[in-house]
């Protein structure tokens, strides 16, 4: 995938010394990381470790108080005009799907392109149907989110994010609210996406997915980046890890 005017080696996401507090609670502590275009990065870590907070700061659903986050060459902390520009380039998939229950599946998908990109309805709908085809549920276009299973809803949510043709996709625990048999259908879609060259930043507890798809795995704990590496390295039993990583990986099994 091309990077639209950026040098190939320039990161598409770069965080430098990001700090965030919720009141007194220090949620992100000096987080620095960079993601290259087309890279698939999986963030793991225990609950409350700041992994969701970090990706929510990337599209500024949360604001950070210190440090710099540069997405696609734009400093998102600067002003709100930048935020709008960044958001339209960054798609996000939520744990709770957050589909709009009063809109049909197709309207959920076409709302963004029509209202933000000012795409004509007919074109947006054709694109929306293609995306539904891609996530495997074209027949649900005119149903409402409430009529779909959890896995189908999450696939619609992915299609909704893709409809904006983002450069980056953020996944915030996309399978945590799903029944085991539905997790697979969502992961299949994500696996397929990873192969297309889109930049993905995935917060998940699905270690199998991380092992199989990730270019790089980051381990977060207590608001800081503790360890990173390729999945082969990070999940390797025989290598020396940070004690917290060891503890976390132990608990997974």
């Amino acid at each position: 995938m091309t990077t639209n005017g950026h040098a190939p080696d320039q990161p598409i996401i770069e965080c430098r010394n990001v700090n965030k507090w919720y009141g007194e609670f220090h949620a992100l502590r000096d987080v620095s990381l960079s993601v290259q275009p087309s890279e698939v990065v999986v963030i793991i870590g225990p609950s409350g470790s700041g992994k969701s907070t970090l990706i929510r700061c990337i599209n500024q659903l949360e604001t950070h108080q210190e440090g710099t986050i540069i997405v696609d060459g734009i400093d998102v902390g600067q002003n709100s005009a930048n935020i709008a520009a960044v958001r339209s380039e960054v798609g996000m998939v939520f744990q709770q799907f957050n589909l709009f229950p009063h809109l049909s599946v197709l309207d959920n998908i076409t709302l963004g392109p029509r209202e933000v990109r000012h795409v004509r309805r007919a074109i947006a709908e054709r694109k929306g149907l293609e995306l539904l085809e891609r996530v495997g549920i074209p027949e649900k276009a005119h149903q409402f989110p409430g009529q779909l299973s959890g896995g189908q809803q999450q696939r619609v949510a992915i299609a909704r994010a893709l409809a904006m043709e983002p450069k980056i996709l953020l996944f915030d625990e996309p399978t945590s609210a799903l029944d085991p048999e539905m997790i697979k259908e969502v992961l299949d879609v994500m696996r397929e996406l990873a192969g297309t060259g889109i930049t993905m930043l995935v917060v998940t507890h699905e270690m199998g997915f991380a092992r199989e798809v990730a270019d790089r795995v980051l381990f977060f704990d207590q608001g800081r980046l503790v360890e990173e590496g390729t999945p082969e390295v990070l999940f390797a039993r025989n290598l020396k890890h940070h004690p917290r990583t060891d503890a976390f990986l132990m608990n997974l099994l």
């Binding site: 599209n59 659903l61 709008a84 958001r87 339209s88 960054v90 798609g91 996000m92 939520f94 709770q96 957050n98 589909l99 709009f100 709302l111 963004g112 209202e115 933000v116 949510a157 909704r160 994010a161 904006m164």
Partner: peptide, 12 residues
């Protein structure tokens, strides 16, 4: 989450 999802799409 509804507002967040809409904001994430870049809606004003």
């Amino acid at each position: 989450g509804q507002v967040e999802a809409a904001r994430a799409l870049g809606l004003p």
